[in-house]
Write a protein that binds this DNA or RNA. Structure first.
Ligand SMILES: [Zn+2]
Ligand SMILES: [Zn+2]
Ligand SMILES: [Zn+2]
Ligand SMILES: [Zn+2]
Lengths: 160, 160
DNA sequence: ACCCCCTTGTTATATTATAACGCCTGCGCT
DNA sequence: AGCGCAGGCGTTATAATATAACAAGGGGGT
């Protein structure tokens, strides 16, 4: 199981993700430019999913461009190359927990704190897809709910 | 396996979904008003996912209100009560293939024609969630890809 | 020097979604 | 009948997410 909700050495988490991204870019001839690298660092600061406009605000505050395409393009690069993932259920973006290697991720997504745990599970639906003659290109698997911290703190609790 | 991409008696499909919705509303004290019923009929016309604004345009053309909340509220009613589902990967809505009974749906979603096949699979991620102390409230399982018809017709084919 | 590709930046616009308020109707109550 | 309330539908206005299209610069190859 990947961490995300548990306590862990997050500096190591960030460092290993960044070096994996650097290595993957070097190996594949991709340009991890300052903008793209900084965008990844912003996502890596926590295991929470950030909206594109949250990322954009951070980038702008640090001297990068201020218009939506700046963030969307950097996020697109990260997602296309497997360094980040889009969480469809939140329209938000999260750093990949296993950068560098291709994988079909699935997620536990807390609606209280927006933190995300990335899991590696076998893809479901393969037999059904085959029966329909359907060619699966990408699987979206997101479990939405509440993490233990949010449950205990009452964040996101259902109104009486 | 549910239909969606295969040929089938679609009039029966629509009729049974509508009568299931009527029965469920009657049984649960829900008001299947003309607006809500018509919205469901619009979704049922095909197995393709429709955007909220597509639905709104249809409703407006038929004399209902023309502003977004009209469509969003009707769709919200249908989704909340299990008569329709939101396809997160398309920000779109599709009629439920098994209305009336609660279920955790999963979908094959064609990016060529936006048609959707609803499947009933066992939820993945349960053991991972338990290990994290995570309380799953809703599973999103969507296989994005191309249906056989779209593959054969070249719709959505990757550029050379 | 010149060209070409890529990256970043911009302007403008499209698409999806919700907040907040008013009117009306149906319904239970007195 | 008269009243009050809840729900549904309509509106206005605005928020949030996303992309199209174009301009400027850099850097490498020839
Ligand atoms: Zn970490
Ligand atoms: Zn949480
Ligand atoms: Zn059908
Ligand atoms: Zn198709």
């Amino acid at each position: 199981m990947a961490h995300g909700f548990d306590r862990h050495d997050h500096r190591a988490c960030v460092a290993s993700a960044l070096s994996a991204a650097e290595a993957a870019c070097a190996g594949r001839g991709l340009a991890l430019t300052p903008l793209r690298r900084r965008t990844l660092e912003i996502l890596l600061e926590s295991h929470a999913a950030l909206g594109a406009y949250d990322v954009l605000a951070r980038l702008e505050a640090e001297g990068f461009g201020s218009k939506p395409p700046v963030a969307y393009r950097a996020l697109g690069f990260l997602v296309d190359n497997g360094f980040a993932h889009r969480i469809e259920g939140l329209s938000a973006y999260v750093a990949c927990a296993r950068p560098g290697s291709p994988h079909e991720p699935s997620f536990l997504v807390c609606r209280g704190c927006r933190r995300v745990a990335e899991e590696a599970i076998a893809a479901p639906l393969a037999p059904e897809a085959e029966a329909e003659g359907f060619a699966v290109e990408r699987m979206v698997v997101e479990a939405q709910g509440l993490c233990s911290a949010c449950r205990e703190s009452g964040r996101g609790a259902a109104p009486c």
